[in-house]
Design a protein around this nucleic acid. Structure first.
Lengths: 213, 213
DNA sequence: CCCTCCCTAGTCAAACTTGACTACCTATGG
DNA sequence: CCATAGGTAGTCAAGTTTGACTAGGGAGGG
């Protein structure tokens, strides 16, 4: 699963109606150009792709009001909302993923009801543990793990990483169950996009730490 | 950095001389089709690319001895060996990476001298800690971390992940400094490829746990 | 002897990603 | 009043990845 579809769908959805440059700005506001592969080309490509698949509706619009070429505005469709929620659920649940998917999942989790988010995170832990025991049981040869030599270090890395993720997930579950944050249906939804004309406090130039290069 | 170049260079290098299907089999033997993006198309593409860049030398060969289309054999060049070692060093050092790069780095680290491997891993820890403090210092707004709301959980994830990796790296350094494994120049090098005709004990069909789906 | 299945070895189109590039408009300083 | 820097909005070619597909040969069963 690539994070870009989720990010773009989520941005358009929070906006209600947005053109490509707005989405691009939101993702930059979120720092996503640094912790995900959200480059201009990918964003415009994703918008076109999503429109082609009926997840976004494209409005052809007259030349921009603020200079530059004419622009296309997008709105999320019913099918798109379904897909968005499906992607959020998948990102929260599955242990398949890169940092960008996980980060996006957390950013969007408030769009689910609190109970469901907790259930999905518990399922996540279950899958991590399942995977962990598959590693330890399947790969350890008869004669003990020493037989593997340095290759055993790879499994060690996998197990260590899995444990750390399970632990972090557990902490998050506790905080959510303890009443933290405002989930779907509990009040004003959290909106993290830039309004028309609002300036981006995290605009380019500054070096952000999400950047793992 | 994508893991595929490193994996393919490493496989050809251990073989001395190999055609695409052999590389494919080695990667399957290593389980790489499950913990990396090593699909047939990617492997053949990488081989051609590496040959074009002068990192591999391609021998055009007559029709296969065992059925199927004619095949091309590859050998690593001097430039290719340099690039291979550069990639191993980079993979060991940088905190940029996905599981596949890390796993490959461990698999190949014995091709470096012991002292260098330790130095690179220490540098890795230094970079992780640098990144960690960049996250905590840069992203925490005035008014405390509570201001961020659920977005703070993303930074929490990053920090937690960084700490886990630093810890794991530290453990690996200790074991290496304690004399574990046989590094470059210390004796018979470790060879993890299938000989001609040798059967792959991890052949397809079985489900491997590296598969994180 | 023939049919089917599987292994060998690889190709290919479609989708996705990357990074550089274009074109237009506004504000600003000299 | 002019040029020039910078923001707006997006395109494009080149490179990479994916997953399905091809085509030939041998093994084994009936």
């Amino acid at each position: 699963m690539s994070a870009i579809r989720l990010l773009v769908l989520g941005a358009v959805r929070q906006h209600g109606r947005a053109h490509g440059y707005q989405v691009r700005n939101d993702l930059e506001y979120w720092g996503a150009h640094e912790w995900s592969n959200a480059k201009p080309g990918s964003i415009y490509h994703a918008l076109k792709q999503l429109a082609k698949q009926g997840l976004l509706h494209a409005h052809e619009i007259a030349p921009s009001t603020a200079g530059g070429p004419p622009r296309t505005e997008y709105e999320i469709t019913g099918k798109g909302t379904e897909e968005y929620l499906r992607l959020v659920r998948e990102a929260l649940t599955s242990y398949d993923q890169n940092m960008d998917v996980k980060s996006a999942a957390i950013g969007f989790m408030l769009d689910l009801p609190r109970g469901e988010a907790v259930a999905l995170l518990k399922e996540r832990i279950r899958r991590i543990e399942e995977w962990r025991s598959a590693v330890t049981e399947h790969y350890v040869p008869e004669g003990g793990p020493e037989q593997l030599g340095h290759i055993g270090e790879i499994m060690n890395l996998w197990v260590h990483t899995a444990d750390a993720e399970a632990e972090w997930t557990g902490g998050l579950i506790e905080r959510i169950e303890g009443g933290a944050y405002t989930f779907a249906g509990e009040g004003e939804p959290f909106v993290g996009v830039l309004a028309e004309g609002e300036e981006n406090p995290y605009a380019t130039g500054e070096r952000h730490p999400g950047d793992a290069r």
